[in-house]
Nucleic acid binder design. Structure first.
Length: 296
DNA sequence: GGCCAGGACTCAA
DNA sequence: TTGAGTCATGGC
């Protein structure tokens, strides 16, 4: 195994600690491991699997990469991955200025200062995660995701710990329905995961092409797949396509956060949600993310 | 035991 | 276009 170390300067309004705290917020996560001051995960580069470990000091993030062979293009991919995952290349100062204009939200800019909208770089993973999480509690959702990842995901052992990648669509497509049922996936979820896997396998959908479309076209392409509804489309648009204007309409967590901070009805209608979000134009995704963060 | 979970679909009216 | 019914099971 070869090893390389990459340095990424920390921008303004960035807190590695708060990002790590978010990653380690209490759900048992099978796709990365957070220790006191570092996070480790297995990622898929175009030339194969690589184990990355990220730490930071006050000025830089340090990404160490372990892989069979490492070349220059691997390092570039690792850097792009980390920048995307932590949303590093975004100036979020304007968002904090908006938060500070309202008494209900000014606390967020202090409490979560430097927290970035942590992404899901892999679009396929992001979509499957949405389907898994639909209408079940998050603890259980993590449980069945872990079963799926352990059975179908590629892995790499490092010391005592084995790290996993989310399964590839072509692998999931070959999965037996009864195996997924035994992991406690509902028939509906299984159908949706097969639909999404198929869409990726026949290249009806891929991240690169979606990124070349405008938001309306992206939503249309996503909603065309059975199992992807408005909530999922907004979620992946926010977490994977990095559109900054997403609102997770219909989300129970968003509803309760708005209820907590704005004294709305327990389940505010879209009009009420739009009114509140209208103060955060072009930062809707961040505002939504911070509202979610306020729940845990 | 009952209600709710980071929804989405079908089908009827 | 809207609303009720269905899925399906763990957590509290």
């Amino acid at each position: 195994m070869k090893n390389s170390i990459l340095t990424i300067p920390i921008p303004k309004n960035f807190s590695f600690t708060k990002c790590l705290k978010f990653l380690n917020r209490g759900y048992s996560e099978c796709l990365y491991k957070v220790d006191d001051s570092q996070v480790t995960r297995l990622i898929r580069l175009s030339s194969g699997l690589a184990l990355i470990q990220i730490t930071a000091d006050s000025k830089n993030m340090f990404v160490s990469t372990k892989k069979e062979q490492i070349n220059e293009s691997d390092e570039k991919e690792v850097e792009a991955y980390v920048i995307d995952w932590f949303d590093i290349n975004r100036d979020i100062q304007p968002f904090y200025q908006l938060l500070d204009t309202q008494k209900q939200t000014t606390k967020f800019s202090k409490k979560y200062h430097g927290l970035r909208l942590m992404g899901i770089v892999d679009l396929f993973e992001s979509l499957c995660w949405c389907v898994i999480g639909q209408q079940i509690n998050l603890t259980f959702a993590h449980k069945i995701k872990t079963r799926l990842v352990y059975k179908y995901g590629e892995c790499m052992k490092d010391g005592e710990h084995t790290y996993y990648c989310f399964p590839l669509p072509e692998i999931l497509l070959k999965a037996q329905r009864e195996d997924l049922v035994s992991m406690q996936f509902s028939k509906q979820k299984i159908n949706y995961i097969f639909n999404i896997s198929t869409a990726f396998c026949i290249n009806v959908i891929n991240k690169k092409d979606l990124l070349g479309l405008n938001k309306e076209q992206q939503m249309e392409a996503l909603l065309a797949i059975k199992g992807i509804g408005p909530w999922t489309a907004n979620y992946v648009s926010m977490k994977s396509l990095r559109d900054m204007t997403c609102i997770a309409y219909g989300d129970t967590g968003l509803s309760s956060a708005l209820h907590n901070h704005f004294a709305t009805e327990k389940k505010p209608d879209n009009q009420t949600i739009n009114e509140i979000f209208s103060s955060f134009k072009d930062w809707e995704s961040y505002f939504n993310f911070y509202l979610w963060r306020s729940l845990s």
